[in-house]
Nucleic acid binder design. Structure first.
Lengths: 339, 339
DNA sequence: CTGAAAGCGCTTACAG
DNA sequence: CTGAAAGCGCTTACAG
């Protein structure tokens, strides 16, 4: 039983093949009577348009690729948990728009050739993942050369002054740290990488600085702990600090994962959170309300982010100009910071 | 600047277009000299094969669709967290095999037409998500009719005696409950749906029963609490039990999410886990080690599951026979069950 | 090992 | 609103 083609439908409906195509694609006016006959014939033969022929002929692919970079830090999950609801929302929103989504896990080891292949599987690419600037730059340069639209969530991309989709990291961090200061915390650890290689974290560091400056507090360099984003690194960093005897009464972590690692170490060392140390995270993973004490954090709005990413990419695909979009964050106060 | 075609490469390399195709697809022998010239020309023009033309002409799609059913229970995440590492592993493994993966979130509200469209976007479909049997049956019947291969992770599908890919739920549950009994627990709650509508949970109930039977213990029907899979439902169920005054000293939950909800309620009511009540989950989400006490659980092997799903689907696509596959689970003992 | 040619199943000007 | 016809960019018998 061969799969039916539009010619089979045409024969059954008593119209030309071209008319079948027009009726089924809803692009040209077709008489109501013909339309019904075509749909009935299609239903009877279980016919669906061959998507590959349509894509080839129309030159519209109607598919976006989501390239998620593998997260080698974490123990078992290969994708950083923050990106999971974001991917879910992208699937959701793209689904509503009738756009297919190809998802690919980008291994650190993989050469760019693999991604490059996406250039004709999708109209554009969304990059997700905590990669440093250099990694993105390489990939993005190739895409620029072949004229393939792309967008990254998170970092500010050099050489693309108008293109930014990400949270308002500076304000989010500022509000979080200002809250800790308001609670009376004076020696607040900054847990994360404060370098321009990861601009989203660097912006959070700037918010941390501004909150201190506005409160007339100086930033103690010994409290800025350079580490990446996993729970293990958060735990290890706090352990080091404790071992050194560096005193602190607050922790602002650039990810919830780091904050959770910090809390686990603090508790293991007999310290009370939030009594002895207030802890604040960033992201608002669903895990925040599973742990004890529940984690205060800066919520990133993944639903809005997904919409903005998909819409921005759609504009780029259509050759339109895009605007830099900073998505507002929201401070979520729970048990871990006391007060 | 128009995108180059195989004719452009042919002209540049001084061969026929057919030879370009053969050199680039690695399907027919081509002389080394010609091969090099073709690859050089392709590289120079940034050429990649048009995947849509290839798919149309060759009739090989080389793509699988992962259809994840939306999880309406949980507060924010749209996909049950258990499926996340499984999806990650599918992306990983399929990527290694050179197969594209189309991921789609299936809304409960959506009509089947949406999925049906996948029939020609992908060679086959992997279903993921906790849906009851009736929901799957409907979809699967259509696929059977149009001859599209599919596979579901979890439930035993009626009418497909040879097709099963899932964890060995009965044994996993048996081992978990037997462990609780060995610790001296005698009144163990079964938290989850013990009905054939969800065969994976029903199998876990059978394991719960067998562990009791082997220990010479009778199963108390008042301790089998019918509830679905979210944290909220787990919390509410335990609350009801406590309010009723039904005594218990152990909880076996069919998902970690339920177990976490149970622990939160127990602690809120002033009970100590594991001193007063031992709690055991199922899945081994990464969250298990974030909470306090860390959750004992039955680990489902998502890496193996992903391989088996992709390989089984590949066999079905090739028209081969498949075997029923029960993937072994592993009991992971942590703080929450004491002992 | 290579070339000339047919054709995969659609969409879309071009006419009417 | 509808039909006849061209053609999207490949793969793959068919010959040599």
């Amino acid at each position: 039983m061969k799969r039916p083609t539009s010619f089979d439908i045409a024969a059954l409906a008593g119209v030309s093949q071209a008319t079948v195509s027009r009726a089924l694609s809803n692009t040209y006016p077709v008489s109501e009577d013909v339309r019904r006959r075509v749909y009935e014939a299609a239903a009877k033969l279980n016919y669906t348009v061959d998507i590959n022929a349509r894509k080839l002929r129309s030159k519209k692919i109607n598919t976006i690729a989501v390239l998620v970079s593998e997260d080698l830090d974490s123990e078992d999950s290969r994708i950083n948990p923050f990106f999971l609801p974001l991917i879910g929302s992208i699937l959701d929103y793209a689904g509503d728009k009738g756009v297919d989504v190809l998802v690919s896990l980008q291994k650190q080891s993989a050469n760019w050739g693999a991604d490059y292949g996406f250039a004709r599987r999708a109209d554009g690419i969304i990059f997700l993942g905590y990669r440093d600037f250099e990694t993105y730059k390489q990939k993005v340069d190739v895409l620029r050369e072949i004229g393939e639209p792309w967008v990254v969530f998170g970092p500010v991309m050099q050489g693309e002054p108008d293109l930014f989709v990400g949270s308002d990291n500076e304000t989010g961090a500022y509000e979080a740290v200002a809250h800790l200061i308001r609670l009376g915390r004076k020696r607040i650890v900054f847990l994360g990488e404060a370098s321009e290689r990861h601009s989203e974290f660097f912006e959070r560091f700037k918010g941390y600085q501004r909150a201190h400056a506005e409160a007339g507090l100086s930033v103690n360099p010994a409290l800025a702990i350079d580490c990446f984003i996993s729970r293990e690194e958060g735990a290890a960093a706090i352990q080091r600090l404790l071992d050194q005897g560096t005193g602190f009464d607050g922790v602002f972590a650039v990810t919830d994962l780091l904050a959770i690692g910090a809390i686990q170490t603090l508790q293991k060392r007999g310290l009370n959170v939030p009594k002895d140390v207030s802890v604040m995270g960033f992201d608002d993973l669903w895990v925040c309300t599973c742990i004890n004490p529940e984690l205060s954090t800066v919520r990133q709005d993944t639903t809005t982010a997904a919409r903005v990413l998909v819409d921005t990419l759609a504009k780029l695909i259509d050759g339109e100009k895009v605007n830099m979009t900073r998505i507002p964050t929201r401070l979520v106060i729970r048990e871990s910071c006391g007060g």
